Simulated scan of single mutants.
Amino acid sequence: MFNPIFTALNAMPRIALAPLFIIWFGLGLGSKVAVGFSLTFFIVLTSTVAGGRGVNPDHTTLAHTLGASESQIFRKFVLPSAVPVIFNGLRLGLVFALLGVIGAEIFASEHGLGQTLSVLAASFKTDGVFGIIFLLSMIGVGISWGMTSLENRLLRWR
């Protein structure tokens, strides 16, 4: 029922909404969170739906046959098989959130790495621009590694 609405919202270029978020929420943290959330939400939602649909139907049929309730099937079959796919969506979503926040800071910000990157680029200081880009790539790698270690710790049973 909600698929056409979510598809239309997902097709919208959300980074183009950054100026609206800045107008609505100001130059502070609120606009950056809104841009990051708008970029991340559909990635995580799509991964969660795909993980839920990827459950082996034979397992759920067997659970129904053995008398399991819907909540037991969800807790024992659907959720455990969907969690790895959800973590992949979270890992990707966090990197996109970082990109969105930096992009919003480049548009308009009082401080932050995006603003620093914009100032350095405007004054043709390429060494500083490459330094910020390297720092942002290391932050992205750190986020990815952090999510991988969290996934490995929480999903030892896999």
Rank of each mutant, 00 (worst) to 15 (best):
L20S: 06
P4C: 13
A8S: 13
L20W: 02
G36H: 05
N10T: 14
N10S: 13
V35W: 01
S38V: 09
L45G: 08
H59R: 14
H59L: 14
I22S: 07
I5K: 12
V33S: 04
V33D: 01
L62V: 15
G52E: 11
T61D: 09
V49I: 15
I22H: 06
T48G: 07
G36S: 11
F21I: 03
G52R: 10
G28P: 10
K32S: 05
A50K: 07
A34C: 11
P19E: 00
G52H: 10
I15K: 00
G52P: 05
V35R: 01
V33A: 04
S47L: 07
L20C: 06
F42P: 12
F41G: 03
A34D: 09
L27T: 01
F6R: 10
A11I: 05
L29V: 14
V33K: 02
L29I: 15
G52Q: 13
F21D: 00
A11S: 15
S38H: 04
A16Q: 02
I43P: 03
I15S: 00
N56M: 01
W24H: 05
G30K: 11
N10I: 12
N10V: 08
N56K: 06
P57E: 14
T40L: 13
V44W: 09
I43W: 06
A34W: 02
M12G: 03
N56Y: 01
A18S: 07
P19D: 01
V44K: 03
A8K: 10
L20M: 13
F25V: 06
L62Y: 13
V35F: 01
H59N: 13
S47D: 12
P19Q: 04
P19H: 00
R53W: 00
G51F: 12
I23Q: 08
T40Q: 13
L27C: 02
L62K: 12
A16F: 00
D58V: 12
I43Y: 06
F25N: 05
L9G: 08
F37G: 06
L45A: 15
G51Y: 14
F25I: 11
L9N: 03
F42R: 08
W24P: 05
T61S: 10
T61P: 01
L62E: 11
N10A: 15
I22A: 03
R14K: 15
S47M: 09
G36A: 10
L62C: 15
V35N: 00
